[in-house]
Design a protein around this nucleic acid. Structure first.
Lengths: 182, 182
DNA sequence: ACCTGAACACCGTTCAAGT
DNA sequence: ACCTGAACACCGTTCAAGT
């Protein structure tokens, strides 16, 4: 990539990360281009679809997902606590920006989505937690990882759209956790 | 209301019902106005916000909600079956149009929403089912009706946005039902 | 090869003029 | 009292012209 192109690419991603954080995932791309000091055409050249930009913005986020899963797995305590705490973390992970939970959860399992690698990272992290609990024999046998992603993602989506606080979300996560355990 | 105003009102609602069904809740209101044969100003006069139009479109839907709850309550069989079947019905009720589950579920508990009466009808129907099961002593004591609405609504929202079929939705509803029961 | 920015399309929303 | 439709604002997207 030419030096000026790389510079523009980086600027756009950096600005988008900030704008998405402040105004949510549906923020105006025109504004992003303006703030990045590029023409709208340049933004569209690098990111033909809005979701390609989301994907770039979430690049570093993948590490955080894996770290969080590691910490959740190291939890000392009951299986139920481990699961509920992981769900709380999961919701927080996908709720960084307004509109994030819906975007990530609806793309889950869709191989054509531009953010497919992000969904996979999320699903793998969730799968690791699920697998460890299954080894303990704590979970129902018929639990599929993607269903858990959708269940918890659904709660996060509702919480995001209704602007619920953590205190309102936890009891719902507990219901799902209890429903998943033997 | 003047005769011509009433006629326009009815036309707009009828057209909107059809358009929302075909293209989802985010369909263009300009199109609705054109198809109803009125100017855009007329539509905005009757329905200042999009959600006021939604509210009018869903007027008859309330009866269907109550009928469905009645039938669910008459179910012969286990409490779990009754609950799961009701959840399946609930999802179907709020999934008439694309975007419906998110709209109805996120407005749940918000007294300022233009569709507040529709949410209340839905919550009341759900509450009737919950109350009957609670009388049977089948449910956890700390279950709040609005939480159940959000849990099931969250699943419906994900299903709507990912275009999942009933076979993929049912297992998730079963998890929630199991998590809610004693 | 890449960028710019004018141009177009689409939609929501308002309001002056009309009946 | 109600309606019309032109007008404006905003945003996404494209593309001819430029470097």
């Amino acid at each position: 990539m030419r030096a000026d192109a790389q510079r523009n690419y980086d600027r756009i991603v950096e600005v988008a990360r900030q704008v998405f954080r402040e105004r949510g995932y549906d923020a105006s791309l025109d504004d992003v281009a303006k703030l990045a000091g590029v023409g709208p055409g340049t933004l569209y050249r690098h990111f033909p679809k809005r979701e390609n930009l989301l994907d770039a913005v979430m690049q570093s986020w993948v590490d955080k997902v894996n770290d969080t899963a590691d910490k959740a797995l190291a939890h000392e305590g009951s299986d139920r606590d481990l699961l509920v705490n992981w769900f709380v973390d999961y919701v927080e992970l996908i709720s960084q920006h307004k509109g994030g939970p819906a975007k990530l959860t609806s793309a889950m399992g869709n191989p054509d989505s531009p953010i497919v690698t992000k969904c996979q990272a999320l699903a793998r992290a969730n799968g690791r937690v699920i697998d460890q609990l299954r080894e303990d024999g704590a979970l129902r046998d018929d639990v599929e990882t993607i269903q858990v992603c959708r269940l918890v993602g659904g709660i996060a989506t509702v919480a995001d759209q209704s602007e619920l606080d953590a205190a309102a979300v936890r009891p719902m996560l507990e219901v799902v956790a209890d429903g998943l355990m033997k």
